[in-house]
Amino acid sequence: MTYVVTESCIKCKYMDCVEVCPVDCFYVGENMLVIHPDECIDCGVCEPECPAEAILPDSDDKAAAFAELNRTYAAEWPNITRKGDAPADADEWKDKPGKMALFDPAPGKP
């Protein structure tokens, strides 16, 4: 089992999870983060740190659709090991559903 970043992260990208990850398995895109499934040790410390509740175990039905997205973009985006600044409008996007159409495949800046 591993953890997966889901659609709730899009346009929020709070990055609180990055600070607690003991294996630095987060990768940063322009408007969301992903977890590299081969690097995640399934410790679960990131899940409660996410204000947007975007991190779920891959066994959760809501996470299944995002497992491949995490794998794909973890191989393309830069690794992030320190918390950065969330977007200025992150709180406005936090609880909005249906954000997948806003997903940006561009890499972010670590």
Rank of each mutant, 00 (worst) to 15 (best):
D58Y: 04
D60A: 06
E7I: 02
I80T: 10
D85G: 02
V45C: 01
C9V: 06
A90H: 15
G108D: 03
K83R: 10
V45L: 09
A65F: 09
A86C: 07
G29D: 09
K109P: 05
V18A: 06
E39R: 07
D61R: 15
C50N: 08
P87H: 14
P107V: 14
V45Q: 00
M1D: 07
C17I: 00
V18I: 07
Y14A: 10
V34F: 03
P37R: 15
C17L: 00
V5Y: 06
P87A: 13
R71G: 03
A74R: 10
V28S: 00
E53T: 07
C25E: 06
Y3Q: 02
Y73H: 00
I55A: 03
Y27H: 15
M1I: 01
Y27G: 10
E39G: 11
A67S: 13
G84R: 11
A101T: 11
W93V: 01
M100Y: 15
A52R: 03
E68N: 12
Y14S: 06
G29E: 03
C17T: 06
K94R: 15
K11L: 15
M32E: 07
P110C: 13
D16M: 03
P37D: 04
M100E: 10
A86T: 05
G29I: 13
D38W: 13
W93I: 07
C43N: 06
M100S: 09
V45A: 08
C17H: 00
P107A: 15
E19R: 01
D91A: 07
G108I: 10
M15Y: 01
K11W: 15
A63T: 12
A75H: 08
P110N: 15
D24A: 12
P105M: 12
Y3H: 08
K11D: 14
K13E: 10
G84H: 01
E76D: 09
K109L: 08
E92P: 09
N79Y: 11
A74Q: 03
C25P: 11
D42T: 00
K94G: 07
L102C: 10
D24L: 11
C12R: 09
E39K: 12
G108Q: 01
C50I: 04
V20H: 01
R82K: 15
D89C: 04
L56N: 13
C21V: 03
F103G: 09
N31K: 12
W93N: 14
P48S: 02
E39D: 14
D42K: 02
D91H: 12
S59I: 06
D38F: 05
D91T: 03
D42R: 00
P48Q: 08
L102N: 12
P105D: 10
P97Y: 05
E39M: 08
T81C: 08
K83E: 08
I55P: 04
K109D: 11
Y3K: 05
W93T: 00
A65K: 12
L69Y: 04
C17V: 04
P97S: 07
Y73Q: 01
P22G: 05
C21N: 02
K83G: 07
P105G: 14
A54M: 00
G98V: 14
E7L: 02
C21D: 08
N31L: 14
D104F: 13
V18L: 02
A86E: 06
C46R: 00
W77G: 11
E92D: 06
K83T: 12
C40V: 05
E49Y: 00
L33M: 08
L56V: 13
A101F: 00
F66Y: 14
P107D: 12
C25G: 04
E68A: 13
N31V: 11
V20N: 06
